[in-house]
Design a protein around this nucleic acid. Structure first.
Lengths: 214, 214
DNA sequence: GCAGAATAACTGACTGATCATTCATTAACC
DNA sequence: GGTTAATGAATGATCAGTCAGTTATTCTGC
């Protein structure tokens, strides 16, 4: 989002504290739209309402900016997910539903562009790929694992290894997210992510339920 | 794959017919590794064992090469899938299993890089995105739909709209494919795509089965 | 068969455009 | 007035795309 200037605001204002996050937000939009190599720092600066030079006051170079985008935006989201899971006490079925809904919210925000970015650029940024694999995916796996575990203990779920199950749970969600942030914006195939995810959740829980006692 | 020269082969050979597909193969590898903007035509040429100028004898510019890569590589695969489905007569359950196995093969080949490419570049190549959405995804959807339909008629499956179900079926497969071709090459999370896909298929078919008669 | 044109595929040094990055200067704020 | 955020013109590196020249192959007349 471009910064609006109030009519009386000075042409160049000094806002040391607010800059980094504004630049990161602008950069996320541009990177997600065009990819790393194709985005121009001039455009990022313009979107943040500053000049190109200012970007370099806060980030060493384009790479550093990219890394900051991925790290800074993801960690709060993860922490939020972890907090939800930790504090929740009810049935795991409901917890999974809640997680899926949160995912949908992330999907609708600018944040949804990040997985696409990380996927696209992991060849050029092994650092980022490692960070994402070890910090985001591994942490997500631990989280998912604990939800499952709880469900198994409560007799809600069959016992299936979390490593094998996580892609089954996340895959359809990720697909809708990527769809929405790339191909889906062109062409005529219309997946409705609301019903798709409802179907997914229904099928997932049905397949995970213990055999009905006979 | 770089072209091997037999010891007696002339330093520069004339191979008008073979060139385009060699260039496309080289370009696929480079694009999949680095993305469109970051790959250099010099590198593509080197990988194909020719000079940069030669690339321009066969493709108008970098964009045209990119489009050729996506079109030429995908269409045969799709046709193959369609042929399989058309000629198959047995239970739809087995057909779905067969499709999943084919997917795994695609996943292991260079072709697996294409979805990543299309996702990454759809912002910069609306043409390609539209092509992929309308030609590949829409065709895939028709195919999936016909498999489902057959299964419903035979009493193997519950009746659920194909548009809602396709992402559920494809999502986990796509996720493993993307994983393998990007993030998964770094970091320490190890999904085993064999067991993941087996789990997926098992859960999918279980959830799609009609209610057991009581 | 074979010289020696004629043709067509191929090459790679060059050109121009596009950015990332720098830094001398300017303007806010205390 | 001093400090520091911000600017934007200038610099230099990187490539996409070109084209005059080189080499492989085919053709032609003998």
């Amino acid at each position: 989002m471009t910064l609006e200037q109030s009519p009386t605001a000075p042409r160049r204002s000094r806002r040391k504290h607010a800059r980094p996050s504004e630049i990161i937000a602008a950069a996320l939009s541009e990177f997600a739209e065009r990819g790393f190599a194709a985005t121009k720092l001039d455009d990022v600066a313009a979107r943040a309402g500053i000049s190109k030079g200012t970007v370099y006051l806060y980030f060493a170079d384009k790479n550093a900016l990219f890394e900051a985008v991925v790290r800074q935006e993801l960690l709060p989201v993860l922490a939020r997910f972890e907090a939800i899971v930790d504090s929740y006490q009810g049935p795991s079925v409901d917890l999974l539903r809640g997680i899926a809904i949160r995912f949908e919210q992330v999907m609708d925000s600018e944040l949804g562009g990040i997985p696409k970015l990380v996927l696209s650029e992991s060849g050029n940024f092994p650092e980022i790929a490692r960070f994402y694999a070890d910090e985001v995916v591994a942490r997500g796996l631990r989280l998912f694992s604990s939800i499952l575990q709880r469900g198994v203990v409560r007799g809600e779920f069959r016992d299936i290894p979390a490593v094998d199950l996580m892609p089954v749970f996340v895959g359809p969600v990720l697909m809708m997210l990527l769809w929405k942030h790339s191909i889906g914006r062109h062409g005529n195939v219309a997946f409705d992510h609301r019903t798709v995810l409802a179907t997914h959740l229904d099928m997932f829980l049905r397949a995970l339920a213990p055999e009905a006692p006979r």
